[in-house]
């Protein structure tokens, strides 16, 4: 698969990566199973899937918190696992993550200031005063009053804690930030603030994001490109507006359809596609196409052969035997009002 013209080196290239965990009975759970993608500099790359799709594990693999059992991850062409452990410790500082639960991501025994300073304190490159100064500046930049400096995490709200995590990561001037469901644990009113903060910081610091979420609204709002994951694999990948407005994989259609719409029922589209059944087991996934057990278009071929990648539009790929041939509903049909307006060009970005 080669979705983009490879002129600049991708910030991250994921090459047929698998992350496997041993489970009882000597079997293996393939949380991520043969995933490939590339993230370009200054891009926001969305990864979407329901819980259990392996998206979080993929995010952790990208920043070397999970070692790939198969394939490899390249950071700007460099394999971090080829480095010595000392070099890896220095290198990985440029690849950061914002976790879903800001409460668990902060050491409860450290003050806010100490937490924010920690990444700089690890190397101690700058003099103490300068580190202090920079931590306070970043607190202000993410919208935290300096009064919080000497407080402990339990004294802050979820949104404030997430701002602390963002400030902490920014101290490192990272090349890439993985945002793993970074707003889904927050109140809806705060989600938008934090998303806007992410957008501002991207423009200001030239950041690259991998935005992992189950929330289609969030992905549509922030991402340039998006990959849809199902049971450890990517099933569809392409520019956000292409994927959202004209999905070519039945699973993406179902995901779009599942998105709740804040409309009175008489204005809501009547065409909803319901997913049937449960997510199959990762330990023994279905043969052929993994989505076939829940697909409304399932054919005998789907159980026999793994679907190849098919390009339905330039840069828009789908892992379905019948991509482009199915009567899949468009995003406009599924969400007549919500997505019709702004999905093509999210505000605040070029």
């Amino acid at each position: 698969m080669n979705a983009t013209v490879p002129t600049p080196t991708p910030i991250v290239a994921v090459e047929r990566v698998g992350v496997h965990f041993p489970v009882s009975g000597g079997r293996t759970l393939k949380a991520v199973d043969g995933v490939s993608l590339e993230v370009m500099p200054r891009e926001t790359f969305g990864v979407i899937g329901e819980s259990g799709s392996g998206k979080t594990t993929l995010g952790r693999a990208i920043i070397c918190l999970e070692k790939p059992s198969a394939g490899r991850i390249l950071h700007q062409g460099l394999d971090p696992y080829a480095l010595s452990s000392r070099e890896l410790r220095r290198h990985r500082r440029r690849y950061q993550i914002i976790f879903q639960d800001p409460n668990a991501a902060l050491d409860p025994r450290m003050t806010i200031l100490k937490s924010i300073r920690e990444p700089m304190d690890v190397t101690g490159e700058m003099p103490e005063r300068q580190r202090q100064q920079r931590a306070l500046e970043l607190m202000e930049r993410v919208g935290l009053s300096p009064d919080f400096a000497s407080r402990y995490p339990h004294e802050l709200s979820g949104g404030q804690k997430q701002r602390v995590c963002i400030a902490r990561v920014l101290t490192l001037r990272p090349d890439l930030i993985v945002c793993d469901e970074a707003v889904s644990a927050l109140d809806v009113s705060i989600q938008a603030d934090i998303l806007n903060l992410f957008a501002e910081l991207q423009a200001e610091f030239g950041l690259t994001y991998v935005f992992i979420t189950h929330n289609l609204g969030v992905v549509a709002h922030v991402s340039d490109r998006v990959a849809v994951m199902y049971l450890g694999r990517i099933v569809e990948i392409g520019r956000t507006e292409d994927v959202v407005l004209s999905p070519s994989h039945p699973y993406t259609e179902a995901l779009l359809s599942a998105e709740p719409v804040a409309l009175p029922s008489n204005l809501r589209s009547h065409s909803r596609v319901m997913l049937k059944g449960e997510l199959p087991s990762h330990v023994s996934p279905p043969s052929g196409c993994r989505f076939r057990t829940r697909c409304r278009f399932v054919q005998p071929l789907c159980g026999e052969k793994e679907p190849p990648w098919r390009e339905t539009a330039p840069g828009h790929w789908s892992a379905c035997h019948f991509a482009g041939e199915l009567p899949i509903m468009s995003g406009a049909e599924l969400h007549p009002v919500k997505l019709g307006g702004h999905a093509a060009q999210p505000e605040g970005r070029a």
Partner: peptide, 19 residues
């Protein structure tokens, strides 16, 4: 998670344990 976070900051194992 805060241990994972500290790991991404490049903390060595002994420092991770003590801090």
């Amino acid at each position: 998670l805060y241990v994972d976070a500290a790991r991404t900051f490049g903390l060595s194992t002994p420092r991770l344990v003590f801090r």
